[in-house]
């Protein structure tokens, strides 16, 4: 499957056509020969017979991987799209927080209507003398939290829900 990237808000794809004797890539249907490339963050890259000095660095934060590419004194930001995120489509399990084991609620950190970011703790539960923080599965707004502190629950019980994400 091709790698998808965005540059200046536009989506592009790159596919490997050939590896040897030299690399051939297809970018949005255009074929490019890359006889020489380097894995270093600062290096040379030859594309279609002309060499370019490049510098690049990756920032993988906030759930997205951005590559800063500097070519000829100009920096560009390319977002590399995770194929899993892209291919997953709508997944109901990402809207809900279920109990991984039976236990009781220790504390509720976020209430219905509050905005949460992926990984933010919504509820802390206790089970078998062990406290576990349950995190938001994605960015969004909490639709409801179905349990209050002190309440017990069974394994797999629904504890909180996010508002459905807007269709992308």
């Amino acid at each position: 499957m091709p790698l998808h990237l965005t540059l200046n808000g536009e989506k592009h794809s790159i596919e490997i056509l050939r590896r040897k004797p030299y690399l051939v890539l297809k970018v949005d249907g255009r074929t490019h020969e890359i006889p020489d490339w380097s894995a270093e963050s600062i290096g040379e890259m030859a594309v279609d017979g002309s060499a370019t000095g490049i510098a690049r660095a990756f920032v993988d934060e906030g759930g997205r991987e951005t590559c800063f590419v500097r070519i000829d004194g100009r920096t560009h930001e390319v977002v590399l799209i995770d194929p899993r995120e892209e291919g997953a489509g709508h997944d109901a399990t990402r809207d809900e927080i279920h109990a991984p084991m039976p236990g009781a609620i220790v504390s509720v950190h976020k209430q219905a209507g509050e905005q949460v970011v992926r990984g933010e703790t919504v509820i802390t539960i206790e089970s078998m003398k062990l406290q576990t923080a349950l995190a938001a599965p994605r960015d969004g707004r909490l639709l409801d939290v179905l349990k209050r502190a002190g309440e017990g629950f069974d394994r797999d019980e629904l504890l909180a829900r996010l508002e459905p994400a807007d269709e992308v």
Binding site: M1, P83, R84, G87, A88, G89, H90, D91
Partner: peptide
């Protein structure tokens, strides 16, 4: 897997 593409990726 949510769909065939994801099944192939996994």
């Amino acid at each position: 897997a949510a769909n065939e593409d994801e099944a192939i990726l996994i």
